[in-house]
Each structure stands twice: as structure tokens, then as C-alpha cells.
Computed example of a mutant assay.
Amino acid sequence: MLEEHKFSIKTVVDVERRVIAGGGDMHYDCEQVLLDDGSTQENIWGASFMPVNQKITYDSIVNLRPRQNRSMEILDPNIRERVAQIIIEFLGKL
């Protein structure tokens, strides 16, 4: 997952199904993998994970949804927490 960006992993998380797609150049690529696998748009959120310091940033164009989230950053603290839990569960030991 670190091939494209040496210190950061682009991820997209389905908070309902508790699945994650990661790696690649853009969050969009991960988003498409989850959509093709049966996820629904309102349940998937983009973030980036830096394994070296376990830092998560919650900015991605896939988060921009006028009816649900009016920013590239995930604004809802509950969704942010769910995204963080899933990322750490799957990638926290890298």
C-alpha cells in the first residue's frame, strides 16, 4: 500500500460493512473498489494514514457530498471516530 506514496496510505472505509480499500494514487481508486464490491456511497469515507506516526487525516474529495458532508474533510465526529477505528484495526500494526 505504500508503493505510490512512501509515507502515507490513501484509504477509503465503509463504516457499515467495516471494510477498507487502500493504496494507489487517489482516494477515488479505493472508492471505486468498494463501490464495485457492494458498498453504498453514503457509507464510504476517505482518509489518509501515516503508519510511521499512526496519524490519520480526514481530507478527501470523496467526502464532499452536499446533502451529507459539505467539506472535503469529514465533519461528523462520530464518522471520524468510526473511520479511525477501522483504519487502526486493519493498518495500525504496519
Rank of each mutant, 00 (worst) to 15 (best):
M1V: 07
M1D: 11
L2I: 05
E3F: 04
E4T: 11
E4P: 00
H5A: 00
K6V: 13
F7C: 07
F7G: 08
F7R: 07
S8K: 14
S8Q: 12
I9N: 07
K10H: 05
V12G: 11
V12T: 05
V13F: 06
V13L: 08
V15R: 04
E16H: 14
E16Y: 07
E16C: 00
R17S: 13
R18M: 14
V19R: 01
V19M: 01
I20G: 09
I20T: 04
I20E: 09
A21H: 03
A21Y: 01
A21R: 08
G22L: 08
G23M: 13
G23F: 11
G23K: 06
G24I: 14
G24D: 10
D25F: 05
D25A: 06
M26R: 01
M26D: 13
Y28A: 09
Y28T: 09
D29Y: 04
C30E: 00
E31F: 13
E31C: 03
E31M: 10
E31P: 00
E31K: 15
Q32H: 06
Q32C: 09
V33K: 11
V33G: 02
L34I: 10
L34A: 11
L35I: 14
L35R: 02
D36L: 09
D36C: 02
D36S: 12
D36I: 00
D37W: 07
G38L: 05
G38Y: 09
S39E: 13
S39F: 15
T40D: 05
Q41A: 14
Q41K: 11
Q41W: 13
E42M: 07
E42C: 10
N43W: 01
I44Y: 09
I44D: 13
W45T: 08
G46S: 05
A47K: 04
A47Y: 08
S48V: 07
S48L: 02
S48Y: 10
F49S: 00
F49C: 03
M50F: 09
P51C: 01
V52D: 14
V52L: 05
V52T: 01
N53M: 03
N53Y: 10
N53V: 05
N53F: 05
I56C: 08
I56S: 10
I56L: 06
I56E: 07
T57Q: 03
Y58I: 13
I61F: 10
I61Y: 12
I61Q: 10
I61S: 12
V62G: 11
V62K: 01
V62A: 06
L64Y: 11
L64F: 04
L64A: 06
R65L: 03
R65S: 10
P66T: 15
P66R: 15
R67K: 13
R67D: 15
R67E: 12
N69D: 00
N69F: 07
R70N: 11
E73H: 04
E73Q: 07
I74T: 02
L75Y: 08
L75T: 15
L75E: 14
D76H: 04
N78F: 15
N78G: 14
N78D: 14
N78C: 13
I79C: 03
R80W: 09
R80C: 05
R82K: 06
V83M: 02
V83G: 10
A84V: 01
A84R: 15
A84Y: 10
Q85G: 02
Q85W: 03
I86A: 11
I87H: 05
I88M: 08
I88Y: 06
E89Q: 10
E89M: 05
F90R: 15
F90D: 13
L91R: 12
K93T: 05
K93A: 04
L94H: 11
L94V: 06
